[in-house]
């Protein structure tokens, strides 16, 4: 399929424009449950704008690695977003085997974030880095199994085709496997973005933080880049879940776009509901849940191969 400039433009516009809104929707949903007014819908846009206008404080012990962390953390979700279709708008960049590239792009971002945290020399940030890396390495097999199932269903090794037109037909032939995968990918979205059953993005209490602790020393534009990168990461992983949930196409591009945007906002509401109704899991239970998710996705593969 030929990708026009218009599509590429739309892709980037959606990514850059819509991703901070998700956090606003989540915040509003949580506020609704708690009976508060909550922060404005566009709070994250204001935050990022404010941070980009601020100065930067750097610790004397840090090196270039510390500055590289946020940059990579912002660049990786943008690159990854180019590999996946948003709704039925095809991916601008696609080649055979890009699913592995997709997964390890996030591996790269994680490596640099963890290194930047270690670079500050603070034991506290090292602890956060250790947790982040542990949980991600437990979540990675789940993504792999899910992608293998989709690759097998679509007969292709590129993400664009795996999440492409064949998906709707696959729901008729292999609904149980796809349903399991949908649940697993949703869990991965939660753990990779440090949402509540795994980590609480709002806490600044020492023993409950995983991701937040790693970015404590960043300030100003660096922190802005981290916030923007995190919002885009949620958007990219959420886009996979939404595409799996709404596989069809309406034929008209405008309608498809609206459907996709609506799906993303619905996902944000669901995340908000999960965050309001569940408590954070004990740290010991998290690996158990992640291994369970991997096994579930493995089982969906068995079910498909049968």
């Amino acid at each position: 399929m030929k990708i026009t400039i218009l599509q590429l433009f739309l892709h980037l516009l959606l990514l850059f424009g819509l991703s901070p809104l998700l956090s606003g929707v989540i915040g509003k949903t949580k506020a609704l449950f708690a009976g508060r007014t909550g922060p404005p819908w566009l709070q994250l846009y204001y935050d990022i704008w404010k941070l980009f206008g601020k100065g930067l404080v750097l610790s004397r012990v840090t090196t270039w690695v510390f500055r590289a962390g946020p940059v990579v953390g912002l660049a990786v979700p943008v690159l990854a977003a180019l590999l996946i279709p948003f709704g039925s708008i095809g991916a601008p960049l696609s080649f055979t085997g890009d699913l592995i590239f997709f997964i390890y792009l996030f591996g790269l971002a994680r490596f640099f974030t963890a290194c930047a945290a270690l670079d500050t020399g603070s034991a506290f940030e090292g602890m956060g880095a250790v947790r982040e890396v542990t949980f991600s390495c437990l979540a990675e097999p789940t993504v792999f199994f899910a992608f293998i199932v989709l690759a097998r269903l679509s007969g292709s090794l590129s993400l664009d085709a795996m999440f492409g037109q064949t998906l709707a037909a696959s729901w008729h032939s292999a609904a149980p496997s796809l349903l399991l995968i949908l649940v697993c990918l949703f869990l991965v979205t939660l753990v990779e973005n440090c949402r509540i059953p795994f980590d609480d993005p709002n806490t600044h209490l020492e023993l409950t933080m995983i991701h937040e602790v790693m970015v404590l020393d960043h300030s100003g534009p660096d922190l802005g880049m981290i916030l923007y990168g995190a919002a885009m990461k949620l958007f990219v992983l959420g886009a996979l879940v939404v595409r799996l949930f709404l596989p069809g196409t309406t034929g008209s591009m405008i309608l498809d776009l609206l459907l996709f945007a609506g799906g993303m906002l619905l996902l944000a509401v669901i995340i908000g509901v999960v965050e309001s109704t569940m408590a954070r899991l004990r740290l010991l239970r998290i690996p158990q849940l992640l291994v369970g998710a991997s096994l579930l996705s493995f089982f969906s593969l068995i079910l498909l191969l049968r």
């Binding site: 690996p287 158990q288 291994v291 096994l295 089982f299 068995i302 049968r306």
Partner: peptide, 18 residues
Amino acid sequence: GYVPTLILGTLATAGSFI
């Protein structure tokens, strides 16, 4: 432990399918 039991259970399930 719980995680090894889960893994064993999944392997047994996969085995019974095969």
